[in-house]
Design a binder for these strands. Sequence first.
DNA 1: CACCAGGCAAGTA
DNA 2: TACTTGCATGGT
Length: 225
Amino acid sequence: MTWDGPATPSAALLMDVFGRLLMRFGPQHWWPGDSPLEVMVGAVLTQNTAWPNVEKAIRGLKEKGDLSLGCLLRIPEETLAELIRPCGYFRIKARRLRNLLTLAAQRGKGDLEAFLSLPTGELREALLSVSGIGPETADSILLYAAGRPVFVVDAYTRRVLSRHGWIPPEAKYDEVQALFMERLPRDSFLYNEYHALFVALGKRHCRPTPRCYGCPLEDLLPPEA
DNA sequence: CACCAGGCAAGTA
DNA sequence: TACTTGCATGGT
């Protein structure tokens, strides 16, 4: 047998790490967005994109009109693309936004709150059926717009976990998600803060370039972990 | 100047 | 199923 890193983290270790992150960075109160609809828009616009660029794009949208389903769907796709230009991939994201908002309007009969009130499993399937909505975007909407206890896995999460040897770098999305959801209580506050704290940690430490060997994450761990 | 960012889908083998 | 490529602006 070959030693390939520390064992899969236990529930106790995951909670311990959460406590340390919370002490270090404080409550994050994510997602940055004033309304469920703004959270949904931000979730699409931030795909592979730095958040400051998304803020610019959302400011542009707000100048044009209020952020409502009807108002946004009335904007032609080409116009929408120009409004969100600063966040990059603007043509494809304009299409993705319309795909998402069209589905929400249909399934909610024009009412976003009704759409977000669908049962969690049904809502996740509906979101994933939209071209341009993958697992991370869908789960971000479920957790941060609909308040459902669904753990979000993103690049920061994977980076931190794989650096500690808790997952192989090639682990699939659903496997990483299950690691948390099978061990921790299904609590939307816990999942909200945990994911946001991974991002807070990731943003403050160096990137995983080939020249980066030791990031100072060790002090977040219990002595023998 | 080079490199990267809170992904995803479509095409190919 | 696994791997590759296009999408694009703005910050460091």
